[in-house]
């Protein structure tokens, strides 16, 4: 019978907290960057110009249809050879995760925009708005409301995806736990604690998302 001993983890608390800080900070960065890429991707796929649409679609599908673990490794090891630029593990993984997330955000944003009745942008156009004004004032404010649950959901997935950056030795929560596990010979306790830490952050978030969804549904 295995003797559980969680007390031993206390001595690694600063290591864990450090790792958690990196994980949370990293998530913020890749969510923000991902949303920026997503916005470009979405507008790209909705462009009037076929070349832009094709480019955006290629970008989205390339990142959506390959595994993120492969992308991380590829960005760190293969891209520098192809492009001739050295990247730190943090830059490489931030880029890969942002683009990966961005490809999913793109589809959410595009879906939100096209879900708004055509009559809305027509009414804007009939008032004399340019397509840009009508997008900003009429379509996006309504579309964003519909996108929020899906964007939050994707961001939660992104938070968990940061655990993969440990393969490039980025010192996130998972990487630091590997260090702690090797040092303490207590991997079972360590990874259990890590799982609890992720859940402790995400469960309140998912509850918030669910509440938000309900409130938005009432507002429809």
């Amino acid at each position: 019978m295995y003797q559980w001993d969680f007390g031993i983890l206390w001595s690694y608390r600063w290591l864990f907290l450090n790792g958690l800080g990196v994980t949370v900070g990293f998530t913020v960065v890749i969510v923000v960057l991902g949303l920026v890429f997503g916005l470009f991707g979405a507008f790209g796929t909705l462009s009037r110009f076929k070349a832009v649409r094709l480019l955006a679609l290629t970008f989205i599908e390339a990142f959506r249809c390959t595994p993120i673990l492969v992308q991380l490794i590829w960005f760190y090891y293969a891209l520098p050879i192809l492009a001739g630029v050295e990247m730190t593990p943090i830059t490489a993984s931030a880029l890969a995760l942002s683009l990966y997330g961005g490809s999913f955000y793109s589809e959410i944003i595009r879906g939100g925009i096209i879900s708004i009745d055509r009559g809305q942008s027509e009414a804007g156009a009939a008032l004399g708005m340019t397509p840009g004004q009508s997008m900003r004032r009429i379509v996006l404010p309504q579309a964003i409301k519909r996108m929020i649950p899906a964007l939050m959901n994707q961001s939660i997935i992104q938070f968990k995806n940061t655990s993969l950056v440990s393969v490039l030795a980025v010192p996130d929560l998972v990487y630091q736990s590997q260090v702690a596990a090797h040092d303490s010979y207590r991997p079972l306790e360590t990874y259990t604690a890590v799982a609890v830490a992720y859940a402790a952050i995400l469960i309140p978030l998912t509850i918030m998302v669910r509440r938000g969804e309900k409130r938005l549904a009432v507002g429809e």
Partner: peptide, 20 residues
């Protein structure tokens, strides 16, 4: 186009009011 449309008012079958 936008400047031109600003001087022509249009009313639609389904109103197309801005719900927000």
């Amino acid at each position: 186009l936008a400047r031109f449309r600003a001087s022509t008012g249009m009313v639609f079958q389904h109103f197309n009011l801005f719900p927000h």
